[in-house]
Design a protein around this nucleic acid. Structure first.
Lengths: 214, 214
DNA sequence: GTCTATACTTGGATAGAC
DNA sequence: GTCTATCCAAGTATAGAC
């Protein structure tokens, strides 16, 4: 493998490289600053200073491009958060991680884009299914962690991990959405603080519950 | 007051009557069946079999009309759920009520419309503020109930009622949104079942916690 | 692969007759 | 207040030159 091939491989994200990646980055940026409603082919092309027609040449449609952006940030998030998440074992660690993830999502605009695409999926049914499929891996990831955490506790019988995971992801998007609407991030921060306090409680209680089991 | 005036008063909802109400109903229906993205002036006029121009004569813009619809269902929900909600005193009563409300919201399409408008508010910043203002009363209503419920328990110090209320409403919308995306209501039902089971637990624990307080 | 030019569509909104 | 006709803007998408 020569030098060029190496650098190309390094640049590949979600199967995108070169112009396609450049277009996707411009779309991501537009989604961040102008929202889904403002992410037209013209706006995206303006943002990236390339020709509008390129979008259709490379992605077929604006819709496909925006879904590709969703794949792109999904991959980036999975790479960045996945390993740490899998490693976390206690409730306080997870609460802490939630705070980090929320902060990074916010800073990089990932959460904006995720929220925009999920919202757009609600208002447009045909998009909805595509977006849902891309959210699914995240629910499953949370589910695995919930299973691990509740394993051997009485909560195992009380709540199906899949339901809890769905609820937690729903909560994440719900908070993002309402914070976004009210243009106020302070409420989300308060809730993350609350999660930290609760996680300490959970951490103190869970082990004793595990011991009580046969 | 004559008979006509009485019937007019009875028909007034959110300040709408006659043609305006008719237009709003058509808009509501369109929002339910075609989503926000499909709720164009032409689509709404087609749904209600009236002239497109009437929308602009009576509401000034499609946007205003859709916000009027949000006011309309907000008022209807407040009338239908408000009294029962205010009366509820225990966690199981509230869990039960949540189930009823979710089911009714679903059946009447209120939840669809709410979700559509909130989602639209996310993708369109200028709409967002208006939608946020219309969600606010619901958060406050939940907040008052949370205050009442936690009054005299150690949780009072742990979590601000306002935060909890914001979290609960976020959860409601988040669940609605993801259920909507996946076109699967079963997960929402499971979570309502879980809420019922948890409420029994809370109900058993809260009184003893209250007694422990000085 | 990229650019220019343009066809086509949809939707918001208004003017003016009735 | 309601209808017809129409304007205008914005957006998707394509054809064809380079």
């Amino acid at each position: 493998m020569n030098k060029r091939a190496l650098s190309e491989a390094a640049d590949k994200e979600a199967g995108l490289s070169g112009t396609k990646l450049q277009i996707a980055e411009a779309a991501l940026q537009t989604l961040k600053t102008k929202g889904f409603a403002g992410a037209s082919a013209r706006a995206i092309a303006g943002e990236g200073s390339f020709n509008q027609a390129l979008i259709f040449y490379h992605f077929g449609s604006v819709r496909n491009l925006l879904l590709a952006v969703l794949d792109l940030i999904s991959e980036r998030r999975m790479e960045e958060y996945g390993p740490t998440f899998e490693r976390a074992r206690t409730a306080p660690e997870l609460a802490d991680l939630a705070r980090t993830i929320y902060a990074e999502d916010l800073e990089r605009g990932y959460i904006t884009v995720l929220g925009e695409m999920v919202s757009a999926g609600v208002t447009d049914a045909s998009l909805g299914a595509e977006v849902a499929a891309r959210i699914e891996p995240w629910i499953e990831m949370v589910q695995r962690k919930v299973e691990q955490l509740l394993n051997g506790t009485p909560f195992q019988a009380l709540a199906a991990p899949r339901d809890l995971a769905f609820g937690l992801v729903s909560l994440y998007f719900g908070i993002d959405m309402l914070s976004h609407l009210q243009a106020d991030q302070s409420r989300a921060q308060s809730l993350l603080d609350l999660a930290t306090r609760l996680s300490v409680l959970v951490d103190a209680v869970l082990p004793s519950l595990r011991e009580e089991m046969p």
